[in-house]
Design a binder for these strands. Sequence first.
DNA 1: GCGTATTACTAATGCGCATTAACGAGTACT
DNA 2: AGTACTCGTTAATGCGCATTAGTAATACGC
Lengths: 366, 366
Amino acid sequence: MEEPRQRARPGRTPAPAGRTSRPRQAEVARLAGVSQATVSLVLGARKQGATISEETRQKVLDAVRTLGYVPDPAASRLAAARNNLLGVFSFTSTFPTDVQHSYYPFLVGVEQEAAARGYDLVLFTGSSTGGAGAAGPHALNRVRLADGCLFLGRHAPADELRRLVADGFPVVHLGRRDELEGLAWVGADYISAGQEVVAHLAALGHRRIVLVREDDEAPASTDREHGFLKGLEEAGLPGGPAAVFRSADPERDLTAERLRGWLDDGVTAFVAEETDTGDAWRALHGTAHFVGIDAPRDASLALLGSPPPDLADGPSPTGFDVPRPQLGAAAVRMLAALVSGEKTREPLVACTFRPGSTAGPPPVRP
Amino acid sequence: MEEPRQRARPGRTPAPAGRTSRPRQAEVARLAGVSQATVSLVLGARKQGATISEETRQKVLDAVRTLGYVPDPAASRLAAARNNLLGVFSFTSTFPTDVQHSYYPFLVGVEQEAAARGYDLVLFTGSSTGGAGAAGPHALNRVRLADGCLFLGRHAPADELRRLVADGFPVVHLGRRDELEGLAWVGADYISAGQEVVAHLAALGHRRIVLVREDDEAPASTDREHGFLKGLEEAGLPGGPAAVFRSADPERDLTAERLRGWLDDGVTAFVAEETDTGDAWRALHGTAHFVGIDAPRDASLALLGSPPPDLADGPSPTGFDVPRPQLGAAAVRMLAALVSGEKTREPLVACTFRPGSTAGPPPVRP
DNA sequence: GCGTATTACTAATGCGCATTAACGAGTACT
DNA sequence: AGTACTCGTTAATGCGCATTAGTAATACGC
């Protein structure tokens, strides 16, 4: 019988012997005098199955400590396990030059909650300015290295997100996102918060309230309006289109005449939504000041959110605050739940009512 | 001849057939009628070596499109023996509740540069309670999961850092750190910057200049003093201990009497170092104001750094700015160089002179 | 004394991809 | 015809880890 000719052995070149590379489980095993499998068993917090003697366990752990062994995340994941890494993906850079527009407040909570649960964070930056990093059609794919990924901002391409979700990869979107079937998300409960603000005003005695908002279809915006209208309804106050003033440019359209007109019509309280720019509140605040309204004496003002930084020094507006760190933390909790296969939990985080100083009882009409 | 008994084949259970998993290169290969290796060659942007016919390339790309294949990053990185991950370690949390005390400005540059080079960032928090790797005495080992690691702040324990460096793990420290042999670092060139400020004052005509600094041995502090003294020397001005006022609590010790004494002695310009707290500048600024000095009319003031946030609204002090984003970027460049085995580069980043409005010609003495 | 548990560990295997030696086919040159 | 190349492709291999069948050793039951 002719022995089949021994083929040469292709494959990768062995690592250069010169530099000491990071230790592997094999080295740990050698040092501990056990097999690589045993090392894996000791390190993996197996819930059942193999048992390891305390003696062996200690030998292994000692070797791990001595060598400073740390598992390779890529290998862990490839072997169908996890690597205790959570991704944070933002299409725009996570650290924009301007802190104001950053996700910083959310990340505070994200980092804390992740650390508390034993996860480290991987920052995946989408198309950054330089963008040499092949921001191809599959840029989102890198996140698969982690056990799951958190998405900030609504810029993540829907089809790629859908793909991740369809593949069963744990994904959580920070901010409501219903249009994407199956996408888990956490968001602030703007509806309840808006409702609460209206309830507060109604309790003070206001009977005619107007909402000033921008021309925007984002959930954060429409939810606030829903909450506002719901609040009116529950208080038995007049709602309908007349209660909402919507404009693409409030600072231009919210004129003094218009404001005076409302006042003459018996409107005693005004509510503005919080926007990226803060324009709605700025317009309301500015025009009211211009007209000579002294809040809350002549009329009450409220803001569905926090004031923009440039107005932060003024009197604290009545309204609510979005608990951004808590939102980040909630997102991490949900992501962790998905990673471990648990059911998803309540996606809404309550906002906190801020009494402020711009709302009071309506003026007594002569 | 007895055939060796056929061992059973242990290993992992095959994936549940139920769910259609994502396509692999093998499936693409089958559809395209080529081998898996060919698929890998087509997809990988090989710089040299194998050549692929245009026909085959198209067949493969078509199959990729048909199946919607996307590479598994875990597998890619495992096979390529690098994770494309850079660690960022800060002993305090990376996102402190107070933005002011954060490394945010550095991270802006770190993120940009890392993204431009195709790296993702892993955030390690030293103080984190759980922190996956139980913040024991070997908490730093956790960073070995990345290809290299950037250290922010000087809280990282020296012995552990030393260990990483000794093991050939690529490490870069943000901020000068000479005492640790072999540690790569990048830092701001405080010496040149301090020198430049003094040169500016000297050029304006000042002949007696005093530096106010805290009682601190941090390189950022001593470097500023060196630069200051070097500047004096180059301008042929009197240096020595008399030119430097050092105090652990400048706000208490920098009294009005002392300041008046200097003025009487012919000192016409004062320089403060920038500190974490901004106390040196605050003391100098405050006492000068108290004494009735109007800068730059009665005397010139300069600051070796940027003013603290609470004084940011006042007149812009003459001095220099530390280009924090650029420092972060430079640190990433150096780290990337270390990871790919290149030589390290220039560790110093130049500060930018800020003319400001607190320095001018010395007053004409009667 | 022999079957059956139980315990403690190891060998073997594959995850999906990158890498490379080897090979067949074609071309060009002695 | 033999040699020397170039081109295009593939088989084989391993990256580092998790998983599981198997085994050896000891303990237990009757």
